[in-house]
């Protein structure tokens, strides 16, 4: 086992473990946060970060031909996660699933109130 192999093993172990930890912390947030908006953050973001790290950790041990699919996984995750967060968050806000008492600042609410938009 050459020095490079050892280095790659350590690198991928660090990536995989940090990625798993990030996913775990996201899940803890999912369980502990008070409302949809906050849970959405925990459900989409640390998971994305964790997934990226796990992909990097796996990719260094694969041949390029197998790793190229992983690049696509990462790319589409990065493109779709924010869109998903925006759509779900917006729907949750309109459906009053984001608790107003959790929001210390709510300039969207003020705007909607001033336009007699909601309710």
């Amino acid at each position: 086992m050459s020095l490079l192999d050892v280095f790659l093993d350590v690198f991928s172990a660090v990536c995989l473990l940090t990625g798993a930890l990030s996913c775990l912390l996201g899940s803890i947030g999912l369980a502990r946060f008070p409302d949809v908006g906050a849970r959405l953050q925990a459900a989409t973001k640390p998971q994305t970060f964790g997934l990226l790290l796990i992909l990097v950790g796996s990719a260094v041990h694969l041949e390029l031909r197998n790793a190229s699919g992983l690049i696509l996984v990462a790319l589409f995750q990065l493109l779709t996660a924010p869109v998903l967060a925006q759509l779900v968050g917006r729907a949750a806000y309109r459906a009053n699933s984001i608790r107003r008492d959790v929001l210390v600042i709510d300039e969207l609410g003020q705007r909607l109130d001033s336009e007699k938009y909601h309710r």
Binding site: A38, V102, E107, L108, G109
Partner: peptide, 10 residues
């Protein structure tokens, strides 16, 4: 956790 506060800013 449960005490987390959030804000929406324009």
């Amino acid at each position: 956790g449960r005490e987390t506060r959030a804000g929406i800013v324009e």
